[in-house]
C-alpha cells in the first residue's frame, strides 16, 4: 500500500518535470524543422529531416551575433562597474563612522523603492542631451545607480569583526590597503552574489535598451529577439532558432552558477 502510494507520487513528479521542460524541448525541436514542416496541418512531433539551416539563416540574415556580443559587453561592464562602485560605499556604510552616515544610507536605500519605469522619460531626455542615445554606454549607466548591491554587501561587511581591521591598522596599513587586503577577500561570497545578479539583470533588461537604442546593429539580444517577430513574422522555425541561440549564454551561466543564483535570490528576494 505504502509502496504503491510512493510510486504514484514519483510518476506524478516525473510528469510535472516533463510538462515543465516541454516548452524548452519544443523550442529546440521547432528550430530543427524546415518551415514547411512547421506551418502545416499534417502535424508531426519530431522533424522528419532534422536541419541546421535555420541556425545558418539566423546568423546570416540577422545581426544575432552582434546582439549577443552587445549584451555580453553590456552585462560584463555592468557587472564590473557595479562592484567597483558598490563595494567602497558599502564598506563606508558598514565600518567607517562619518557624520551623516545614517541619513545617507537611508537616502540611498530609498532608491530601491523607485521603479525604473518612472525614470525612462527623464533619462531618455538626459541621454539625448548628452548625445549618448544609441550607444552601449546609455544601456549601461542607469543600471549602475541601483543600490541593491550596496544593501547586500553592507550586510555582509557588518559581520566582519572589527578586530581584524584594527590589527591591520596597528600594523600600519591605511584605510585603502585594509579594504583591499582584508575586507574584499573576506567579502568574496557576497560580492559573487552581487555581480551574478548584476549580470543577469543587465542581460535580461528590456524596456530601457528598447528605448535607448534604436539602431538594429546596436540592439541587445532581448530587444533583437523581440523585434524578430516584427521582421520575420511567420518564420517560426527561424524565430525559434534565434531564441535558442539567444538562450545559450544564459544557460551556460546558469549551469556554472546554479547554486549561487538560487541562493542569491533566496537571500535578497530581488526580482528582475
Amino acid at each position: 500500500m505504502r509502496n504503491r502510494k510512493t510510486a504514484i507520487y514519483r510518476i506524478l513528479e516525473v510528469l510535472l518535470i516533463l510538462i515543465w521542460v516541454f516548452p524548452l524541448v519544443w523550442m529546440v525541436i521547432t528550430s530543427l524543422k524546415f518551415e514547411n514542416e512547421v506551418v502545416t496541418r499534417n502535424f508531426t512531433f519530431l522533424p522528419e529531416n532534422p536541419t541546421f539551416q535555420n541556425y545558418i539563416d539566423a546568423f546570416q540574415s540577422t545581426y544575432i551575433l552582434r546582439w549577443l556580443l552587445n549584451s555580453l559587453i553590456i552585462s560584463l561592464v555592468t557587472m564590473a562597474a557595479t562592484f567597483i562602485l558598490d563595494a567602497p560605499i558599502a564598506y563606508a556604510f558598514a565600518k567607517i563612522k562619518f557624520p551623516g552616515r545614517n541619513i545617507l544610507f537611508w537616502a540611498v536605500m530609498a532608491g530601491m523603492m523607485v521603479p525604473f519605469q518612472v525614470l525612462i522619460v527623464p533619462l531618455y531626455l538626459q541621454f539625448n542631451s548628452y548625445g549618448l542615445v544609441n550607444t552601449l554606454a546609455a544601456a549601461i549607466i542607469p543600471r549602475l545607480a541601483m543600490p541593491i548591491g550596496i544593501f547586500i554587501l553592507r550586510q555582509f561587511y557588518e559581520g566582519i569583526p572589527d578586530a581584524l581591521e584594527e590589527a591591520a591598522f596597528i600594523d600600519g596599513a591605511g584605510r585603502l590597503r585594509t579594504f583591499v587586503r582584508i575586507i574584499l577577500p573576506l567579502g568574496k561570497a557576497a560580492a559573487t552574489t552581487v555581480i551574478i545578479l548584476a549580470f543577469i539583470n543587465a542581460w535580461n533588461d528590456f524596456l530601457w535598451p528598447l528605448i535607448a537604442i534604436n539602431e538594429s546593429q546596436k540592439y541587445t539580444i532581448t530587444v533583437g529577439i523581440a523585434n524578430f517577430q516584427g521582421t520575420h513574422g511567420t518564420q517560426y522555425s527561424l524565430i525559434m532558432a534565434g531564441a535558442v541561440i539567444a538562450s545559450i549564454p544564459e544557460l551556460i551561466f546558469f549551469l556554472i552558477f546554479r547554486r549561487k543564483i538560487i541562493d542569491g535570490i533566496a537571500m535578497t528576494g530581488i526580482k528582475g
Binding site: 567597483i84 562602485l85 558598490d86 567602497p88 560605499i89 564598506y91 563606508a92 556604510f93 567607517i96 563612522k97 562619518f98 557624520p99 552616515r101 545617507l104 540611498v108 532608491g111 523607485v114 518612472v118 525614470l119 522619460v121 527623464p122 533619462l123 531626455l125 538626459q126 549607466i141 542607469p142 549602475l144 545607480a145 541601483m146 543600490p147 550596496i150 584605510r175 579594504f179
Partner: peptide, 27 residues
C-alpha cells in the same frame, strides 16, 4: 574617518545623484 567615509562613498553617490535623484526630480 570623515575624509575616508566621503571618499569611499563618493563614486557611487555621483552616479546615484546624476542618474537616480536627478531624473526622478526632472521627471
Amino acid at each position: 574617518d570623515t575624509r575616508d567615509g566621503i571618499l569611499f562613498s563618493l563614486p557611487f553617490l555621483i552616479v546615484f545623484v546624476l542618474f537616480m535623484v536627478y531624473p526622478l526630480l526632472f521627471g
